[in-house]
Design a protein around this nucleic acid. Structure first.
Lengths: 125, 125
DNA sequence: GTGCTGTATCGACGCTTGTCGATACAGCCG
DNA sequence: CGGCTGTATCGACAAGCGTCGATACAGCAC
């Protein structure tokens, strides 16, 4: 459906941060990263993010994001704000509607951070 | 230092879940994933995780994990419990000491989930 | 202008979370 | 056995978070 469906995924090439399994995270980095993970720590926000990212054109109007959930409009608005302040999405008003899109660098950063070394034998036991 | 330093990282090959930017996350999946991200949403837990993962041999004794932090021993113990219940680490008592290690599949799962499509032009502007 | 629709902010509420000190439990040593 | 060290649990507290209804703001239509 959406044209992005066949694009390759960003691999380790775009790794902006070393994987956290390589060396201990610094105190300051940990605080910044924890803020991003906190934004991902709510089921509604996770679904909002994937809904936005997988929406046609890579962006979605708030009006598209309210229907799928059982919570009130102010609550959705609140969650979108959390995602925005965590640097995970961008937003813009266009006339009557407000559009949100994912900031791919942010997701790539977290993804790279969680990259793991090849699984040892223990993992397959 | 540690022998894992030169191992290749797990790439998209081990992707067990489709990236969340491909299609909307289901309600149930979102709940399970949010639990894992919640475990990562605290700076101390992030540092604990990277400390464990980057420790020699891929595992660390609790006694190694208390020193680097300014919080009490019960607090560290609490955070380790959160990481364990989220499925991010495993643990085992060996005599007097308790050892923790990272479960690579869990990190790989989250990493794959956050994989992003190649960045559009907008990202470089 | 007035009214209407889409979105954000506000204030309040209950629940969860991070932290602590105190204490319990597990295993070693002598 | 008794005492000691390492780790986990408990109970309490303050702070943070998700949710709501009410309301304010922004832009279109008429």
């Amino acid at each position: 459906m959406s044209k992005q469906a066949d694009l390759p995924l960003l691999g380790p090439d775009v790794t902006c941060c070393a994987p956290m399994v390589r060396q201990p995270l610094g105190e300051v980095d940990a605080i910044e990263l924890s803020r991003m993970f906190k934004a991902l720590s709510d089921p509604i926000r996770l679904r909002l993010l994937s809904l936005i990212a997988s929406h046609e054109g890579g962006e979605a109007c708030v009006c598209d994001l309210i229907g799928p959930f059982d919570v009130s409009q102010p609550t959705i608005s609140h969650h979108l704000k959390v995602l925005r302040e965590a640097g995970l999405v961008g937003s813009e008003r266009r006339g009557t509607w407000v559009y949100y899109w994912v900031l791919p660098e942010a997701l790539a950063k977290l993804s790279a951070l969680l990259q793991t070394p090849a699984v040892p034998a223990k993992a397959s036991a």
